[in-house]
Simulated scan of single mutants.
Amino acid sequence: MSLIFIVEDDLKIAQLLKAKLEQYSYEVKLAEDFRHISEEIVRADPHLILLDINLPYYDGYYWCRQVRKISNVPIIFISAREGEMDQVMAIENGGDDYITKPVRLELLVAKVRAQLRRAYGEYAAPSTYASDRSTDLDSLSQEQQQNGRIEVEGLVLWLNRNELHYKQQQIDITRNELLLLECLLNRYGEVVARDTLLETLWDDVQFVDDNTLTVNMTRLRKKMSELGLPDAIETIRGQGYKLKL
């Protein structure tokens, strides 16, 4: 049974979300000490976090950054803030998705289910690869696949570690960044359509603002730049993205 941890200081809303999720057989725990959210999350060890932005003491962005130091657990922001910049900040600070209040409960359940599938279920980051990949992919050694990594032109993505290595340098990446880069590496040198990348991250593509992909890609490019690869991800106007090292 998956455990959902809800960080929401409005008890009425928190109880409403809890009741709805429990209808679908999820175990739900509510945050109690808003001064020490990280400690509560560590103790609860949840499979997914629902996180409000307006909270006592520190806002949701702060707590999301703290969680990302210790975990890649899926985080869905839930907030009354409807502005585009708020949603951009949620993604920039490590969130995986964003739902505005008043919450449509069926949409909430669908997004929770999708994130859990991505992180732990049938759509979790694989360590084996489909047989219809390009010739470049076919050259990946069996040892690489068994070790849960993809290596192209010296760039090594460790699927089970959320790490990216290049020329004796190493950087941690988020789950979304890993999924995007895995998709680009698996189609190295090819143009990957935006829709394909959206589907890599989210099942319910109709609910996703296209700008969310842009923000995630910007974050990934920043990480690549830190490794000395500022121009590795090329935007192909009107089509998508291409990885070239």
Rank of each mutant, 00 (worst) to 15 (best):
S131A: 08
V208T: 01
T100R: 06
K18H: 10
K69S: 01
L179Y: 04
I78L: 02
Q168S: 10
P56N: 13
V112K: 07
L108V: 05
A130L: 11
V191E: 07
Q169Y: 11
Q239R: 15
V152P: 09
G154C: 02
K167F: 09
M85F: 14
N162F: 12
D231K: 10
Q239I: 13
V103I: 05
R175H: 12
E163R: 01
L197K: 01
S225I: 00
L198R: 14
Y57T: 07
E122P: 13
V191P: 04
A124K: 14
F207M: 07
I236L: 05
N216A: 06
V205E: 12
S225C: 04
V67K: 04
L213N: 13
I233K: 02
V28M: 05
M1Q: 10
A119T: 02
T100H: 04
L164N: 07
S71F: 00
L155A: 05
Q206D: 15
R149C: 15
R68P: 06
E153G: 07
I41E: 01
E199M: 13
V215S: 06
I76Y: 02
E40N: 03
L178Y: 06
D132S: 06
L11A: 08
L185S: 01
F5Y: 14
L220V: 09
L137G: 11
G154A: 08
K167P: 05
G83D: 15
W158G: 13
L55N: 06
I41G: 00
L185E: 00
P230L: 07
K12A: 11
Q144K: 04
N93F: 10
T174Q: 03
V191D: 09
I91R: 15
V192R: 12
E143L: 09
P102E: 06
W202T: 10
L107Y: 03
G154F: 00
D10V: 03
P230D: 08
A90C: 14
D9H: 10
E199W: 06
R118W: 11
S25L: 11
A119I: 00
E182Q: 07
L180P: 05
Q146N: 00
Y98E: 05
S131C: 04
E151W: 10
A125K: 09
L181T: 12
Q15F: 14
N160P: 03
G148S: 05
I4K: 03
L181I: 15
Y58H: 11
L179H: 04
V109K: 11
N160F: 04
N211I: 06
